[in-house]
Simulated assay, not measured.
Amino acid sequence: MSNVVETVKQVVEPILEKHSFYLFDVEFVKENKSWYLRVYIDKKGGITIDDCVLVSDELSEKLDAMDPDPIPQAYFLEVSSPGAERPLRNDAELKQAIGEYIHVSLYQNLNGNKTFEGTLKSLDDDKLVLQNDKWGKQDTLEVPRNLIAKARLAIQF
């Protein structure tokens, strides 16, 4: 079903550009007996429900007007935010998260821990620099990139 995903990406990109949103992901999946087309969008400052409705309406209209129909089977269209704790999957997403509070899971221990949270201060090819005043004397930590299993945005409590 990658043809569906690629077609939807091509159709939704101009809609998102027009509204200064960006595409986080598209998935077309079958769950039980139903198909779901999920489009995850975002913008600086976060997506609202009204933003999702706007994109859903415009995308639905564009897809319905296409001939031949790029998605011949019945499906549910869902447009949403990727979430407050969305994954940071690549360098571009990590760079965009500079200044944000993130959670990092490691493949092996660093300073006795495999998970860290803090504000992402910087990154380069070799390391991320996190800052967190709850760590006591050491308020910044350099995390080697080769130790990072997963990174995601986090909610600071």
Rank of each mutant, 00 (worst) to 15 (best):
Q73T: 07
G99T: 10
D67Q: 08
P72R: 06
S80C: 12
Y101C: 04
T119E: 02
N90I: 08
L54I: 00
D124N: 15
V53A: 14
L110C: 03
L54T: 14
D57T: 14
E78R: 04
H103W: 09
N111A: 12
T115M: 09
T119L: 02
K33R: 15
D50I: 02
A65T: 08
R38D: 01
M66L: 15
K134C: 02
L106V: 03
L106T: 08
N32R: 15
L77D: 00
L130H: 02
E100W: 07
M66C: 06
A97L: 08
Q131C: 05
V55P: 01
G99K: 09
L123M: 15
D51M: 03
P82S: 08
K127R: 11
Y40L: 14
L110P: 00
L120M: 08
L128I: 08
G83F: 10
P68F: 10
K62C: 05
L37S: 07
A97F: 06
A84W: 07
L37K: 03
T48N: 06
E78A: 11
E117Y: 02
A84D: 04
L130Q: 01
D67V: 14
D125S: 13
Q73A: 09
I47H: 05
K43W: 09
K134I: 01
S122P: 03
R89I: 12
L37T: 05
F76E: 15
V104S: 01
I49K: 06
V55C: 10
D91E: 15
G45I: 10
D64W: 09
S80Y: 06
G45S: 11
R89Q: 11
I71M: 08
G83M: 12
W135M: 07
D67A: 09
D126A: 11
E93S: 14
S56Q: 11
L106N: 03
R86N: 09
L37I: 14
G45R: 11
D42A: 09
Q96A: 15
S105R: 13
L94V: 10
G46W: 05
Y75C: 07
R89N: 13
V55R: 00
I98D: 02
L110R: 02
E61T: 13
L128H: 01
Y40E: 10
A92D: 13
F116D: 00
V104Y: 00
S80E: 04
I49N: 09
D50P: 01
L77E: 02
Q108M: 03
S81F: 10
E61H: 13
D57F: 04
D69W: 02
I102R: 00
K95G: 07
K62W: 04
E85W: 08
E93Y: 05
L63A: 04
T119N: 01
